[in-house]
Amino acid sequence: MTAVAAARSPRMNARTWDRVLIYGSAILLALWVLVPFYLIFLSAFSRPNDVFTYPKPLLPTDLSTETMQTFLNSTGVFASVINSIAVAVLTIVISLAFGAPAGYALARFTFRGRQAVQLVILASKMFPVAILSIPLAVAFLRLGLYDNVLGIALVHSAMALPFVVLVTAGVFAGVSNELEEAAMTLGCSRLTAFLRVALPLALPGLAAAAIFTFVISWNEVFASSILTLRQRTLPALVLFALQQSPLYFKFAGGFFMVMPAIVFIFFMRRYLLNLWGGR
């Protein structure tokens, strides 16, 4: 018995060390990701004058909503938040309306040119879309889309579309084709089979795609800044104000931009791997 215990203990020890190592490094990396969020939270929930206090308090002992209030009451902030939301919602509508059918086609059909289409979608996912803002600004000036919520939404849709196509393709591929075929043998047309069977089952995945689209649009800085003058989105406003605005304004703006992102990523965490990895 003692011999067995003695033989086992070094192995148990190695096992324990292994776990300590894994959890230790996992937690360390998690702290690296999380600590800046905590610090921007501290900075955003302080008084505007606190930016000059030094050394900084590292514990949330003296929280105040004063900075956030000042930020939200600053000229243009409220309007820019509204613009950001409007652009994001428009982007969701446009990119899902265009992208979901394409995703469905890629998931359901084998057809000539399928590979080529997939390659085009993948390439446009990597294409530096922001670069196109300058010629688009020139074109939009002519079309009356410059400094216009719809104009920004169009560019954001072009950025989001490849993602939406790939994610929705994954979502629809997860809904067995036989279900729709069964519905078609039971009296449905392709459309009604889709609406009654595939759509309800794909809804959570489509919601995730919508959320991710929101995040893309909510975050986008370059095109929004180039394409707007007065109808700025929140990131465009913060970027524009970067040179002139006081630190507390930046911190509050940073916090405000970050918050929805964290929440939204939580809701679509199951689909994270579909965005960049996978098929």
């Binding site: 036989e178 075929e181 069964a182 043998t185």
Partner: peptide
Amino acid sequence: IAMVFQSYAVFPH
């Protein structure tokens, strides 16, 4: 026609 599928294709929802 009516059809029975290999996976049954019973609507899960």
